[in-house]
Design a protein around this nucleic acid. Structure first.
Lengths: 175, 175
DNA sequence: TATTGTTATACTCTATAACTATA
DNA sequence: TATAGTTATAGAGTATAACAATA
């Protein structure tokens, strides 16, 4: 763990230190913000709601607890999350075939349609984000970011395949 | 603003859609988290506190309001922020030469020393983040991310040179 | 006895609006 | 009259702990 740069470079307004971590942190923040806004404007959804719909599209019919475990959302907050989406008619609680305590949460038809429109908004953000790049540069960036992401997935207990912003922070060690 | 991909790719756990926006969002979130933890462990500082120290190192002696404007932190919250750092002895409120209502906030010597250690922790995160990359890849990634960052700075009212996590979100249009 | 969904309570963070002392 | 700093109050979001129904 060598320090790749001197420890205390001057920081002038308008400049950022040439650090991958700083840039990722900043750009990730802004892109998340853009994504949240786009989803709000296009389909009146929050990032977390989008995340649950995405998960349901791929793995529906599971219990709130199972879904919440994947998304790192505790059970008590899953209640309101599912409540809201159910109120919008995008999700439904059906009886669980194996366990009468649990619900089988799944997408409705309206939910699928809304999810498709949400993806369109997300890809518009993608296009906007990559606007400053040549196609070849975008491909290269995708490759490099993918390398970092897969390395992380192999290393620690990262949440698989889930969009950040809807994933809860890991519990702080709180020394 | 053409959609570069079909609107609704399947999302399997363990996979992420090949999107720069998704990857930036996720990696930015995780790197910010890592950075926050490293700062907490090394110097018991939060990202926002680190941000203020960084700003003071470059532009100290300014009023809380001026500092808060740069960091997008409203005046009332600047109070607690400066209070905490002053309580740690890292920052001091001195009399403002031009305006007796305002304070001139500046780094103490201990603040400078702590900032240097904070930068060391930050660069350790940098090294850790770039671990999976070859040196040439890291350079290339730095270049591509820098391209996105500068394009954003020119475009909208992004905060100049300030680390995210310590910058407040822009006010939502709230349609 | 353990678990699913739910609720109740407290706590943290933030926003809004006042207040004081200076300008 | 406006501004810098501060404080007070209320609101949103979250965590912790309890609860009823079922396993």
């Amino acid at each position: 763990m060598t320090t790749p740069r001197p420890p205390h470079p001057p920081v002038r307004p308008g400049e950022l230190p040439p650090s991958v971590a700083f840039l990722l942190s900043r750009l990730g923040y802004e892109v998340s913000r853009d994504m949240g806004r786009a989803l709000h404007d296009a389909v009146d959804l929050e990032l977390r709601q989008f995340g649950l719909l995405r998960l349901l599209a791929d793995a529906g019919g599971r219990s709130q607890r199972a879904l919440g475990e994947t998304l790192r959302i505790p059970p008590n907050r899953m209640v309101a999350l599912v409540d809201d989406l159910e109120g919008k008619g995008l999700v439904e609680r059906r009886i669980h075939p194996d366990d009468r305590r649990a619900y089988a949460v799944s997408l409705t038809e309206a939910g699928s349609a809304t999810l498709a429109r949400a993806y369109q908004a997300a890809f518009a953000v993608e296009a906007d984000t990559c606007g400053p790049l040549e196609p070849a540069e975008r491909t290269r960036l995708l490759d490099l970011l993918g390398k970092l992401a897969t390395a992380r997935m192999e290393r620690d207990d990262a949440v698989p395949g889930v969009h950040p912003g809807l994933v809860e922070p890991e519990p702080e060690p709180e020394s």
